[in-house]
């Protein structure tokens, strides 16, 4: 996902920390955070993933005025096949890697550039043919400095994963 302007804000960090049930006060309380080694609120390690909020074209967020493939009156809101093989909704997340050059803090303004990586295939007993694709996202701050390198691997399955 390419993102021009990802504003790192304290309230978003708070909501993100709540969602991963992390009560470390460095994510909530600026006064507390002053007394910690980083010296300010920082973002939890996987926070960069929420750059999706700032991607105008992110396909897993309903867009105003456009049909949404999740259920409404019917199981899917689009007339074409919503599933597209197993997984629906664009496949599954297979791997995620982060390299931290420094930690994010409120006030940072990031941009993200996405580079395609490798693709490969593998047969699996539980889901048929698996097609993997890698993307490398470089997050840079307001000074152009590289702050996080994120490598994601997605997988499309031939059919839903057997349980």
């Amino acid at each position: 996902m390419a993102v021009d302007k990802f504003l790192v804000e304290a309230s978003h960090i708070m909501m993100f920390a709540r969602s991963i049930a992390d009560d470390n006060q460095i994510y909530y309380d600026g006064d507390y955070a002053k007394g910690t080694e980083p010296g300010s609120i920082i973002a939890p390690p996987t926070f960069a993933q929420s750059s999706a909020q700032f991607d105008p074209d992110y396909f897993l967020r309903p867009k105003i005025g456009e049909p949404w493939f999740g259920s409404g009156k019917e199981p899917t809101g689009v007339t074409s096949s919503g599933g597209g093989g197993g997984g629906g909704g664009g496949g599954l997340h297979a791997e995620q890697h982060f390299e931290y050059h420094r930690h994010l803090k409120p006030g940072d303004v990031l941009s993200a550039e996405v580079k395609p990586g490798k693709t490969w295939e593998r047969e699996s007993k539980r889901a048929g043919k698996l097609t993997f694709s890698e993307t490398v996202t470089e997050y840079r701050d307001q000074n152009g400095e590289l702050v996080i390198t994120a490598t994601g691997v997605g997988v499309r399955t031939e059919r839903p994963v057997d349980q």
Partner: peptide
């Protein structure tokens, strides 16, 4: 929080 609204 993350912005990933995949209906799955």
């Amino acid at each position: 929080a993350s912005g990933d609204y995949n209906p799955l």
